[in-house]
Design a protein around this nucleic acid. Structure first.
Lengths: 348, 348
DNA sequence: ACGTTTCCCGGAAACGTTTCCAGGAATGTA
DNA sequence: TACATTCCTGGAAACGTTTCCGGGAAACGT
C-alpha cells in the first residue's frame, strides 16, 4: 500500500484477545472486567487487570459502541450559533468541563442561525450516535428535534424555549431582566426610551420585547412605536437605526435599551459619534468584555453562560445516565443587573 | 432533497444489507457504490442509489472505520488552551469551516496550559482514532506528540513552534511584529519603554521579548531591566506590575509594550486609574474587541486567528488526504499593526 | 445421596461495515 | 475455436468489542 515513508509499523494495537490470552481467561471475562460487571472471581479480576496493564491495553470505545446494547459512545454534541462568539464559547467551556468529569467528549458545530445548517449538524451528529445533544435551536428544526428525541437521544435546548416532549430546556429570564432594567430607567424619570431588538424569529428577542412592554405597562406609560426598531441583526444596522431615531424623530429619546450585545455596541458607536454618550442613558442586554473600561461604563442586564452551560450539561448527563424523567424539565436561570454608569444617567 | 423542518419519521436502523436486498445485489457491491469505488456496472450503481434513497439509508461512519484499512473516522481533534478565549474560539471556527467542507467533524478540548491535561486529551483523542490533530502545544508534550506522529496520525502545531519530525506548524511572526512596534515607539522619541511579558515557558512570550530586545539593539538603545517584567499571567498581575514600574521607578517609562491580551487590559486599567492614559503610550500584542472604543483607542500588533486556523486546517487535511510530505512544513503568518492612538502618543 | 438452583466462565454469534477471494462472464489473442 | 486474461460480482471473513448461551462446579434443599 501507499506506505508513508518514515511511518512506524502500527505495532500498538493490543486487543482484548491479547489480554485474555496473557491472563489465561476467556474473551468474555476480560470484557466483564473492563466494564466492571459483577460476578467475576476476585483473582481473575486481578489477573486481567495485571495483564492489561502489562500489555498497555487501551479500550476501544468505537468498537465497543458498535455492539453495545445501549450503544453509548461517550460523546455528546453541542450545536451553537457560532463557536466563536463569547456567549457560545463560554457555554461550550462549561459543557466541556461537566462532560470531562464523566470522560465524555464534546463535538461542536456552528449553525450560524440557519435552520438548514442546524438540521444538517443534528443529522450528522445523530448518525454518529452521540449520547446526547445540547442545542441552541434556531427555531426551524422542532420537527427534527422531536423525532430525534423520540428515537431515544436525550436533548437539552438552551437559551430559547421549545415545547417538545421530554426535551429539557435551560433559558434565562429574558422578560423579567428586561422589564426590571427598563423599569429602572422609567423610575429615573425617563419617559422616552428607545428599543433596539434582534430578529423577531428568535424567542429571546420576543421575550425581551415583552419585558420592555411590561415595564411601560406596569408604570402606566405608553410606548411610542417610533422609538422601537426590531429585526436588527448587526452592529452596523444598530448604529444606523439608533442614529435615525436620535436625529430624525422630533422628540428624541433620552434613554436606549439595546436588547443584544452587538446592538449595544452599535448604539455605543453612534452615541459617541454624536457626542451623546454622557447625555443619553444606555442599558444593554448581555454583558461584554471591557464594558467597564468604557466611559461611561456600560450598564447591562447580565446572564451567566457558564451557569447555563453547567445546568444544561447536568440535565443532559442526568438523562443519559438513565434518569428517564417522563416530563420535560425547564430550568430558568435569573439575570443580573450591572450598574456601571451609562444606565444611571438621568434625563435632562 | 434538502427538506428542512418536520422530517420523515426515519425510525429504524436500515442497514447496508437492507439496501443490498432491495437493490437485488450483493453486500459488497453496495459498499463499493457507497464508497464510490470504480468497477461497478452503471445500472447496478443506479439500482443501489435508488434503493438507498428509497429506504433512507444512512452510512454508519463508526462501523465503517472499524474495518476500513485506513481507519479513517472523518473526525479531527483540536486541542486549545481554552475554547472560551477569543483567540482559541476564532481559531476553532476557522478549523470547523475548513473541516466541514470535507464532511469532517471536530472534537475539541481545553488544556488550560497544563501539560498533563494536554497529554490526557491527546491520549483520548488518538484512542478514538481521529484522523488528525491540531494542537496549541503547552510545550510539555513533545515526546508524546512525536510518538503519536510516528504511529501515523498527522499533527499540526499552532501558535508555538515545535521541531518534530513531520509535524507541521503554523506560527505568527511574533518577533518581527514586536520589533516593528517597539521600533515605532523608539522612532517617536520614546527612550524608556516598559515591557510586560507572559510566562517564559511559552514560546511566543520568548519570541516577543526577543523582538523587544532587537528593536532596542537596532536603534542602538540600551534596555533598562527595571522596566521589564516577565512571567506575568493575569490582568491583575499586570495591573500591579505596571503600577509598580510607573510609581516606584525614579525615572518612569513614557511608553509600555504589553506582550499579551490580558496584560494590555491590566495595563489599561492602571493607566486609567493613575490618569496617565493620555500621557503614556501603549501598544499591546494581539487585538481585542472594543479596543477602538476606548479613549484613546488602543494600538495593537494584530494577528489573524482565522487565517491561522485556516492554514492549520489546510496543512492537516492535506496530509490526511495522502499528501505524504516527508518533511515538516512551517507556515508563518505575518502580523499587522493597528494604529488607534495609544501607540501614537509622543514622549512628553 | 440426589435433584435443583445458582454462580462463573468461555466459546460463539452479533454489531455494520470493508476487504479478501474465488467464480463466472466477457473480452482479447492466437 | 480454444485458451488466457481481464472485469464484475457476491459470499464470507474480518475489525474489536459486547452479549447470548450452554455447561460445569458449587451450593442448597430434601
Amino acid at each position: 500500500m501507499a506506505k508513508i515513508p518514515g511511518d512506524e509499523p502500527r505495532h500498538g494495537k493490543v486487543t482484548m484477545r491479547d489480554v485474555a490470552q496473557r491472563a489465561g481467561v476467556g474473551l468474555a471475562t476480560v470484557s466483564r472486567v473492563i466494564n466492571g460487571k459483577p460476578g467475576v472471581a476476585a483473582d481473575l479480576i486481578e489477573r486481567v487487570n495485571e495483564a492489561s496493564r502489562a500489555l498497555g491495553y487501551r479500550h476501544d470505545v468505537t468498537a465497543s459502541s458498535l455492539r453495545r446494547a445501549d450503544r453509548r459512545t461517550a460523546t455528546i454534541a453541542l450545536v451553537l450559533e457560532d463557536v466563536a462568539n463569547p456567549f457560545s464559547s463560554a457555554l461550550h467551556r462549561a459543557v466541556e468541563d461537566a462532560a470531562r468529569a464523566e470522560d465524555i467528549l464534546v463535538l461542536t458545530g456552528s449553525s450560524d442561525e440557519h435552520p438548514e445548517r442546524e438540521h444538517e449538524l443534528i443529522d450528522t451528529f445523530t448518525l454518529r450516535r452521540v449520547d446526547g445533544l445540547i442545542v441552541v435551536p434556531t427555531g426551524g428544526t422542532d420537527g427534527q428535534l422531536a423525532t430525534v428525541r423520540r428515537q431515544g437521544t436525550p436533548i437539552v435546548c438552551v437559551d430559547r424555549l421549545v415545547e417538545l416532549d421530554r426535551v429539557d430546556t435551560v433559558t434565562v429570564d429574558n422578560r423579567e431582566g428586561t422589564r426590571a432594567a427598563v423599569r429602572r430607567l422609567l423610575d429615573l424619570g425617563h419617559r422616552r426610551i428607545a428599543y433596539l431588538g434582534d430578529m423577531r424569529a428568535i424567542w429571546t428577542a420576543r421575550e425581551r420585547y415583552e419585558g420592555y412592554l411590561e415595564a411601560h405597562a406596569g408604570a402606566g406609560r405608553p410606548v411610542d412605536e417610533r422609538l422601537v426598531r426590531r429585526d436588527i441583526r448587526s452592529a452596523e444596522a444598530a448604529e444606523h437605526a439608533i442614529g435615525e431615531i436620535l436625529t430624525a424623530v422630533d422628540d428624541p429619546p433620552t434613554a436606549v435599551f439595546a436588547a443584544q450585545n452587538l446592538l449595544t455596541i452599535g448604539t455605543l458607536r453612534t452615541l459617541q459619534r454624536l457626542g451623546l454618550h454622557d447625555r443619553v442613558a444606555l442599558i444593554g442586554f448581555d454583558d461584554f468584555p471591557l464594558a467597564d473600561m468604557l466611559r461611561p461604563g456600560v450598564s447591562v442586564v447580565s446572564q451567566d453562560p457558564a451557569e447555563i452551560g453547567l445546568m444544561a450539561a447536568r440535565l443532559l448527563l442526568g438523562r443519559i445516565n438513565g434518569g428517564d424523567h417522563r416530563h420535560a424539565r425547564h430550568a430558568v436561570v435569573p439575570t443580573g443587573y450591572i450598574a456601571r454608569g451609562s444606565g444611571e444617567i438621568p434625563p435632562p
